[in-house]
Amino acid sequence: MVNNLASLFTPVLLKRLTGFAACLGLLSASLVSQAAEITPTTLRLAHVVNTEDTYHIAAARFQELVSEKTNGAVTVDIYPNASLGDERTLLEGMQIGTVDMGVITNGPVANFVDEFSVFELPFLFPSHEAAYSVLDGEVGQEILDKLEGVNLKGLAYAERGFRNITNSRNAINTPADLDGLRLRVIENEVYVDTFRTLGANAVPMAWTEALTALQQGTIDGQENPVNAIHAFNLAETQDYLTMTRHIYAPAIFIMSLPKWSGLQEEAQVAVLEAAQEASTYAREQNAVMEAEQLAELGEAGMEINESPDIEAFQAAVTPVYEKYGQQFGDYLPRIQEALQ
């Protein structure tokens, strides 16, 4: 039977088929070899928010992409809800290698590298697209690279989004409405000075502490993007939401530099690409979800002011630019020039 089948093929065709089979064998061996090049590794990725939040969406997409790009050699375990500590604790853990990586809000990162605070200047970015053009461009990459100086590795800018004010005391339309408001802000000097300049009693604290303070009424309000306000059901403690869009807040995929340096080059490429792609995905999801989240917050009883007097807020924060304008070297003028 075999001899009869062989007789159907010419010597030339047999030679080509044999060569094709050999190529398939080499390709298969190459794929096996490539997968074998990456030593099995598990990365512990932590963040401080719940599994409904954009940070977790970004982390979960990263987890999928890393597995795909390494054929399962690198796995990612996700630790949400501040289970490994607040954001400062996570960053300090990455520095000494006890935490592998995280998705971290830009504000706390600025406590480790001052230049990140330039992104926190109020009303700097007029739109999401303007922010992306800077963060994904030369200035953004230069600042991201500065993390290596503090034993961290910056991978990509994901997104927290434009921040807005919520409170339980009164509706807000102008800076005057913030007078005396006990407002939780990120533990970052630019945030603190911005809201004290606006007349609020700015109270810097970790997010985990802020949730308890809001429930107990020891603070009146807080400021965060819509996705966080929705994810943490702040309508339960906050009656008013004002869409000031005062600061665009990146979130950052950050890794322990010792952990990064210990990865093989192939794994480093996969991790970096996955972080960048997951960040883009998170931005897209934010854009899709915001309108629906606002509608649900309104249905839950929040009074939403979508058009406060932004010009009055912009004029009121001029002293913040006077104080910090020269603090970040040439980064602020370079950003402003890029946005023109």
Rank of each mutant, 00 (worst) to 15 (best):
M1F: 04
L5T: 06
L5K: 07
S7F: 09
T10D: 03
P11M: 11
K15T: 07
A29E: 03
A29G: 11
A29Q: 12
L31R: 05
Q34K: 11
Q34A: 15
A36W: 03
E37D: 08
I38D: 00
L45S: 09
L45T: 09
V48I: 15
Y55G: 11
H56L: 13
A60L: 15
Q63H: 07
E64Y: 12
V66W: 08
N71A: 14
V76H: 04
D77T: 15
I78L: 15
Y79H: 13
S83P: 00
D86I: 13
D86P: 02
T89N: 02
Q95I: 08
V103M: 14
V113K: 10
D114M: 10
F116H: 04
F116E: 03
S117C: 10
H128N: 02
G140M: 09
Q141C: 10
E142P: 04
I143M: 08
I143V: 15
L144Q: 09
D145E: 11
K146D: 00
N151R: 05
L155I: 12
L155P: 08
A156G: 13
A158T: 10
R160D: 08
I165Y: 02
N170G: 14
A171W: 00
N173M: 11
T174L: 14
A176T: 10
G180H: 06
G180Q: 03
E189Q: 10
V192W: 01
G199K: 01
M205H: 00
A206D: 10
W207C: 10
E209S: 15
A210F: 02
L214D: 05
Q215Y: 07
Q215G: 11
Q216F: 00
G217E: 01
G221C: 12
A228E: 07
A228C: 06
I229C: 12
I229Y: 09
A231R: 04
N233C: 04
L234D: 05
Y240R: 14
T242F: 05
T242N: 04
R245D: 02
I247W: 00
A249P: 01
A251Q: 07
F253C: 13
W260S: 07
S261E: 15
Q264T: 10
Q264G: 12
Q264V: 11
V269N: 06
A274G: 10
T280I: 15
Y281S: 07
E290D: 09
L294K: 01
L297A: 09
M302Q: 08
I304P: 01
E306W: 00
I310E: 05
A315D: 09
P319S: 12
K323Q: 12
Q326Y: 07
G329E: 03
D330L: 14
Y331R: 04
P333R: 11
Q336G: 00
